[in-house]
């Protein structure tokens, strides 16, 4: 396989990227709670997967699901302080929150989600955004189904409590 084959493989991967980026960016946003971190995660994971595109697309029936699982794992296992230059998503240049407030600023549920530990948040996103079963989540994250169940239940309880707390604080300032 020479340079031409590599170029073909990357061309094929490029088409996948074109088709899937909108959905993946949205998912990244849900997963991380922040569009910048989400796009960063999408880019990092896609680059790794693209570097082995032929073998991955041969091994998996559903490369999109594979990418999404990889993103969930990557999100759980890393806390990066440094963000990359944003190349894949069109986001406001200026991250000044006064000029570009969080669109979910007044969404107590979103704010509560943000405060969940990353694994709990990933379980919630895989369950209710991706619609995966507990068994599928367990497989994706490499943990036992019992762990998924307990993480999901902890997460829902904590979301419920936070929402109750937010409501008690008064009908929003």
């Amino acid at each position: 396989m020479g340079g031409g084959a590599v170029a073909r493989e990357l061309g094929d991967f490029g088409e996948f990227v074109d088709a899937q980026l909108p959905g993946l960016l949205r998912y990244g946003y849900a997963l991380t709670g922040n569009p910048h971190d989400g796009a960063d995660l999408v880019q990092t994971v896609l680059e790794k997967i693209g570097s082995r595109w032929n073998s991955i697309s041969r091994k998996t029936d559903d490369p999109v699901a594979y990418v999404r699982r990889s993103m969930a794992n990557a999100h759980i296992s890393r806390w990066r302080k440094r963000r990359r230059e944003q190349l894949v998503a069109e986001l406001p240049e200026n991250r000044d929150t006064y000029q570009h407030p969080d669109p979910f600023e007044h969404e107590p549920l979103w704010q509560a989600l943000r405060e969940l530990p990353p694994r709990q948040r990933a379980v919630i996103v895989l369950r209710y955004y991706e619609g995966l079963s507990e068994a599928e989540i367990a497989h994706s994250l490499g943990v036992s189904p019992g762990t998924v169940k307990s993480q999901a239940s902890k997460a829902i309880t904590s979301l419920r409590k936070k929402l109750a707390g937010a409501a008690k604080e008064g009908g929003q300032p």
Binding site: G14, L21, G50, L87
Partner: peptide, 9 residues
């Protein structure tokens, strides 16, 4: 975006 990702790969 596509080119950025493919170059990164």
């Amino acid at each position: 975006a596509r080119d950025a990702v493919v170059s990164g790969a």
